[in-house]
């Protein structure tokens, strides 16, 4: 579904991704963790071309991102992206936030787009908020709308960039619940998060990144119970100790 082939990326002289090679299969749920500045957000932002890479190749759904004839817009429509800061459109109601892309990109008829939007709002647990504006919602509700907005394009893969990091503790679980349901439905997901409970319960595979490299990867049980790298052990002891 997604493949990184010896990907390198620099911000100026800062080498943020170093020789990353990675394969993510259809239906797989991959959690990426690591200290801040390790390149984990950059990694998933490269998948939908929000960040260009300087060498190597990324293949998404069989399409090479370096291909000059690639229709990036069409590819992005198949990749859902959920941001740490929600990024809902503040001037549009929840309903309009969700139907904008289906109406303008897929040219879906409005009644159909709204029907799908209502079903998605039901699915993320806020069916009564269609006419609310983002500013009237709690952080957890905004993030669930953001997930619904991404799902409205019926993506083949969902990318989450620290989706709960900006949330109050009591709202984290409501967002994680939605994501867990999504994983159970077989969605291919790449999740950058520090929610290790979620990783343990839901992920098929956990990646640990540090200084632009994938230091360690494995299934959650092995990853948490017997990490091989001392760097991973040190990181896990820090975030699991409280």
């Amino acid at each position: 579904m997604v493949e990184f082939q010896r990907v390198n990326k620099w911000y100026g002289s800062l080498h943020v991704l170093r020789e990353i090679s990675l394969r993510i299969e259809q239906g797989e749920v991959v959690v990426v963790c690591g200290p801040s500045g390790s390149g984990k957000s950059t990694l998933i932002r490269c998948v939908n071309g929000l960040e260009p890479i300087q060498s190597g190749e990324i293949v998404v759904g069989g399409k090479r991102l370096s291909d000059p004839s690639l229709d990036m817009t069409a590819l992005r429509a198949e990749i859902g992206f959920v941001f740490q800061q929600f990024n809902l459109y503040p001037h549009l109601s929840v309903m309009e936030n969700i139907v904008l892309a289906p109406l303008k990109v897929k040219k879906a008829p409005r009644p159909e787009a709204e029907k799908i939007a209502r079903r998605l709002l039901e699915r993320v647990g806020i069916p009564d908020k269609a006419s609310a504006y983002p500013a009237n919602l709690s952080g957890g509700q905004q993030q669930r709308v953001a997930i619904a907005r991404a799902l409205a394009m019926q993506p083949k893969i969902m990318l989450f960039d620290e989706p709960t990091s900006a949330l109050d503790p009591e709202m984290i679980s409501e967002v994680l619940e939605v994501m867990t349901d999504l994983a159970k439905d077989g969605m291919t997901m790449v999740v950058v998060t520090h929610e290790m409970g979620f990783a343990r319960r839901v992920a098929h595979r956990v990646l640990f990144m540090d200084e632009g490299q994938i230091v360690e990867e494995g299934d959650p049980q092995r990853f948490f119970d017997s990490p091989a790298s001392p760097r991973t052990k040190q990181f896990l002891s820090k975030i699991l100790s409280h």
């Binding site: 929000l50 990749i79 992206f81 990024n87 991404a150």
Partner: peptide
């Protein structure tokens, strides 16, 4: 914020 623009692009606009 630039991320508003990124959010719009990410949905395929």
């Amino acid at each position: 914020p630039k991320t508003q623009f990124e959010a719009a692009l990410s949905t395929g606009l």
